[in-house]
Structures are given as C-alpha cells and as structure tokens.
C-alpha cells in the first residue's frame, strides 16, 4: 500500500493537471445525469427541494403522464417541424455560401466570410431584441418592406404557424456561420490536382462540382448533418427568447417544455423525465445517421 502511494506521488503531475477538469466534469456532467435518472422516477418539486422526505417514488408515472400531456405531444410535433424544415435549409445554405466563398481568396471574400459568420457569434438576447423589432407587426422593417409591395401586415410572431417559420428563418440566419466555416475548411483541403485532372478530361465547371467537390465533402457533410440535427432537436433559445413558446404553444419545443416544467413550475421529476425522452430521441436520430452513412460508404 505504501508502495502504491509512493508511486502515485512520483507520478502525481498528470493527475494534478487533469484534476480540475475531471472534477468539474464529474460534478456538473456525470453526476447530474445519474441524478436526473433517479428524480425522473419521483414526484420531486419545490417542497422536495427543501425537505427530501416529501419526495415519493412514483415509478413510470411521469413517463406515462408525458405521453398523455397535450402540450408535450405538441412540443414533439413542433420540434420535428423545426428539424424537418430547418436542418436541410441550414445545410444547403451553409454549403452554398461556402462554395461561393471558395471562389476567391482576395480581401472581399475574407470580408464576406466574416459577415456571414457574424450572426453565429451574436448573443441570443441581442438577436431576440433586434429580430423582435424587425418582426414587430406595426413598426417592424419587414412589414414596412412588404407594405411597399401592397402586401398586408404579416403576423410574424402572433400566428402559431407563421411564428414557427419566423423562428426557423432566425435560426437558419444564426446557424449558417459555423457550418459554413466547416465546409470551407473541407473545401480548402481538396487537392487542386483533382480539378486539374478533371479539366484535362474536359470536365465543365458544374461537372467538377457534382463529381469531385460534393463527393469529397462527404465527411464534412456527415459531421455538419449530425451536429446540426442534434442541435435542432434541442431547439430552445429561439422560442425561449422570442415567443416563450406561444402563441397557443405553437412554438414550444421539447427543450423549452423541459425548461418550463423544471424552472417555472418547479416540477423537477416531470421535467427530468421529459429530458430523458429528448435524450432517447437524440440517440435514435444519431444512430439512424450512422446507419445511413455506413450504407453510403459501401455504395
């Protein structure tokens, strides 16, 4: 035993280096997931927070309740709505911008790279304030521009269906920057000789795009798809700051539902159960992606 401690002391440096990070991650990531699992089977609420003896074990009741909760079912529908429309839109837009930006390397292209990245580094509250003003039904810029074409006022955030699209527009605007940089890094990694060889064979510009560029971006596209999909399944900030889930729960997402149940209603057990449903959806979506990629490689 003494030998073991002597050994540990001699090799203490790597442990000293990793201790702060490992300790913080255990306390704020590993331990919480265990706690979340336990409380998802209890009726823990604000009372339970003060006095643990009032917490009761309720089995699968929270999970059963979730799937009869009309708002939760609506939040699942809304989340899939966001994902199905938003994810392809983000991927297409960021790939498009990256392809355009890859045309040149002069100052102007670098400037535009910065401009397209700007929304990605903008604070979400500032985004909400600015876009709330743009979407304002009476004084907003968008409705003013539409009025120039004699189009009636659009209820950007007041109509349950239009509000979903308004949030998607905002999220796409914010989501292009990061993915564009990933695509751009991948594009710049493609050897020039591939294109030269294709030119010798007489390939036209669009042929080079379809037969060389797009296939070689397969890994970047896979990475962007996975991360964007996971991000959009957790769609939270946009409805949280723009609409608080309204009107008529028309924009509430699963993640927002969890937040509202947890921090507004202090229904911790119920919210934790909701968060595990979301976790399982994310895992399933990721597995499907990996499965599709496998068949893609064999092809």
């Amino acid at each position: 035993m003494a030998e073991f401690f002597k050994d540990l002391y001699k090799n203490r440096h790597p442990y000293t280096f990793i201790t702060p990070a490992v300790l913080l991650l255990i306390v704020f990531a590993i331990l919480p997931i265990c706690i979340a699992l336990v409380i998802s089977f209890t009726d823990m609420d604000l009372k339970g927070l003060a006095d643990w003896s009032t917490i009761n074990f309720v089995g699968f009741k929270n999970y059963v309740d979730l799937f009869t909760d009309a708002i939760f079912l609506k939040s699942i529908f809304n989340t899939f709505f966001y994902v199905v429309i938003g994810v392809p839109l983000v991927i297409i837009c960021s790939l498009g911008v990256a392809l355009l930006l890859n045309f040149g390397n002069s100052f102007i292209f670098k400037l535009f790279r910065g401009i397209y990245y700007m929304p990605a580094i903008t604070n979400i509250i500032a985004v909400a304030v600015i876009w709330g003003f743009l979407y304002n039904i009476d004084y907003g810029l968008f409705n003013y521009i539409l009025s120039l074409f004699h189009i009636d006022k659009v209820q950007w955030l007041e109509d349950p269906l239009i509000a979903k699209f308004s949030l998607i527009i905002l999220a796409v605007w914010k989501g292009i920057g990061l993915n564009m940089l990933i695509f751009l890094a991948a594009l710049q990694g493609i050897p020039k000789s591939y294109y030269e060889a294709a030119e010798i064979d007489g390939a036209k510009g669009w042929q080079k795009l379809i037969f060389i560029t797009i296939p070689l971006l397969r890994f970047a596209t896979f990475f962007v798809t996975i991360t964007t999909l996971i991000g959009w399944l957790q769609f939270f900030e946009e409805p949280f700051v723009m609409t608080k889930g309204g009107p008529l729960n028309g924009t509430v997402s699963i993640a927002l539902f969890i937040y509202q149940k947890g921090f507004q209603d202090s229904n911790f057990g119920y919210a934790a159960a909701g968060s595990f449903v979301l976790f399982i959806i994310i895992i399933i979506a990721t597995l499907i992606q990996f499965k599709l990629r496998k068949s893609d490689v064999e092809y």
Binding site: V22, L25, I26, A29, I30, P32, I33, L49, F276, L278
Partner: peptide, 22 residues
C-alpha cells in the same frame, strides 16, 4: 469519460446541476 460528457444534452443536466448548486 471526458469525451462521453460531450454526448449529454444540456437539458438533461440543467435541472440536476441546479439542484446540486442549490
């Protein structure tokens, strides 16, 4: 262990982290 923490969605840990801090 560290890499595994990347896969945990923020919504799952949000409530327990609040309870721990409390």
């Amino acid at each position: 262990l560290i890499l595994a923490t990347m896969m945990i969605p923020g919504q799952v840990t949000m409530i327990p982290v609040y309870l721990i801090l409390n």
